[in-house]
Design a protein around this nucleic acid. Structure first.
Lengths: 329, 329
DNA sequence: AACATATGTGTAATCGATTCCACATTGTTT
DNA sequence: AAACAATGTGGAATCGATTACACATATGTT
């Protein structure tokens, strides 16, 4: 490896001067600058990031903590983040909690030790230990998808999206609307979407049979099983529409229905959330909500970079969304 | 930030001793070890990775270069890589070339300057400059998906997969089989899959109308357009089956066919490669080839770690695959 | 008892950059 | 012509770890 000292020697200057050229700081004569740049070019010299970051306390890396790496949402968000940060010469250090809560905290600490310049967390839950860890590491921090108190958060409008979907189903003439959600430890997906559904049903004076509310775990399979449960447990009091809180589970739901010979949307209307590519190509195509994940990713990244440059702002942002009407309703 | 010096002072020892405790090297009395560990625990001290890696030349990070971050293949591969490396305490530094070849080289250099311990590259092409750059950085290196001469590569068996798909279509009674491929600068997807198709057609003595061979760019849209071209340009000599080299393009192909009122597989059989989740849920479900991307990812990671520990092996591995018969054929 | 070996700890050099300070030269202002 | 500012360059400390080497003490072997 060639180092700054090698370059200095070759150019017959001190390493101070080389550093000045490389960082465009201080005075350097045009002649020397050119000489140094030529040598840098020729040797393909690249400064050691470790040395640089040891000295400057900045690494040019931002840490991203994902609940699950191989999901469409995650990869869209990462693409959005990458778009912004790479433009400014930053790199992404990826970590995957595999949906285990303890790991969120563990990875925050780990990223800190790696001197990342900031962290973007896609949390799946909220707890005190998580919050205090975030406070402790004291780094520019963005929460994406969950509203973490005291921390800059950019959240999806889960409540209103759920309200809109439910209203839309009601407006289409449905009064018996079922719901497949996820666990309540996830405030965004588990709590807010369910709340939007329940309150809208109530507002319209529509009753909800207990058997109509099932809980999945984000997988296609769990959507399939939940739908099966509804048909089994509702004893003839079958809903005419179902609101499933994620596209993947909605796909599973549709699979079961199709398998059982139900017509979609004739016998049962289905709506999801997520606007996965798949939702467009299943048949019938799935009515869903687009959360603009990629935009959410770039926005988080932008906010993080802002925090890095200026103050530690603590603000809340709500991402907007769009209901996509398709053939499943 | 607390440093090793702070810990040393608090424990009334030299930083050498602290380092020994932290790295389990050399002799340290049980008493001192305990004293130090207690302090480390209490202060939440984490060693600076920059300092450590400046001194040791190892970072605990492995670099991954992807052609496109938000694809199913990429996220599966990354999941596989992550599974293996995180188990050994390594982190992933992600970069995305956005399908631009120059960036592959640029990122290799960049990862080098970040002192990554190794690199996994998902290349989309091969050229001399790329090869020489890889030689120069002289790091444990794995190429996934392309066979790079002189470099440990783990490749998909594109040729035989294409042969199998084509044979399968022939065995189903098709003799007029079209093909949608990608550009030839991609040796794996562009060249090998086409070769498998052409040679198999030839072996069966089947002719290929020039209009039956189109080229897309991996996008769903380009599959749609290619199919449109085939119907337009074949002047009545329409194929009865089509082999599309990626699932996404195959989905686009099916879209066009369905839109035009063709029956799949009655009027036209369609086969893809990739086993995307989507392929399972479109209708009709798509016959495709499963490349076990996740396994390929973990295998690459495992090989990289092996190289790190032992020698710089230079071997070639061929990943196996599986033809999945579904309803589109 | 003499010597070798094992155990425990510290000193100081080192990794490759950045940056404060000093110093020299040149140009500008009074 | 003296004083001052602007420009250009280098010396040396520094960031926070690792590690070769030296040294002291304890233990074991003949």
């Amino acid at each position: 490896m060639t180092t700054i000292n090698d370059i200095a020697k070759m150019a017959n200057v001190s390493r101070t001067t080389v550093s000045r050229v490389l960082n465009n700081s201080g005075y350097v004569s045009e002649e020397v600058r050119k000489r140094i740049l030529d040598i840098v070019e020729k040797t393909g010299y690249i400064p050691s990031v470790s040395a640089k970051s040891l000295r400057t306390k900045r690494s040019g890396v931002i840490g991203v903590i994902l609940p699950k790496i191989s999901t469409e949402t995650a990869s869209r968000v990462v693409a959005g983040i990458n778009e912004v940060v790479s433009r400014e010469g930053f790199q992404i250090l990826l970590t995957d909690t595999e949906l285990k809560k303890e790991k969120e905290i563990e990875y925050i600490r780990l990223l800190q030790s790696r001197h990342v310049d900031g962290i973007i967390l896609l949390a799946t839950n909220i707890n005190d230990q998580l919050l205090s860890t975030i406070k402790e590491v004291n780094l520019p921090f963005i929460s994406l998808g969950q509203d973490l108190p005291g921390i800059t958060s950019i959240v999806y409008d889960d409540y209103h999206a759920a309200v809109d979907v439910t209203n839309m189903l009601v407006n289409k003439g449905h009064s018996k609307i079922a719901f497949i959600g996820v666990g309540e430890d996830d405030p965004a997906v588990g709590v807010m979407r369910r709340k939007g559904y329940l309150e809208t049903m109530e507002k319209h004076g529509l009753s909800v049979d207990p058997s109509w509310m099932q809980e999945g775990n984000f997988s296609i399979e769990s959507g399939y099983e939940s739908m099966k449960k509804i048909t089994k447990e509702s004893h003839g009091n079958l809903p005419s529409a179902i609101f499933v809180v994620t596209d993947r589970m909605a796909i599973g739901t549709m699979e079961y229905l199709k398998e059982q010979g139900y017509n979609i949307p004739g016998d049962m209307a289905v709506a999801g959330i997520g606007a996965s590519v798949m939702s467009q190509y299943v048949s019938p195509s799935l009515t869903t909500v687009d959360y603009f994940n990629r935009d959410a990713g770039s926005k988080s990244a932008q906010l993080l970079l802002d925090q890095l440059k200026y103050k530690n702002i603590n603000e809340k942002f709500t991402q907007n969304y769009r209901l996509i009407m398709r053939d499943s309703v």
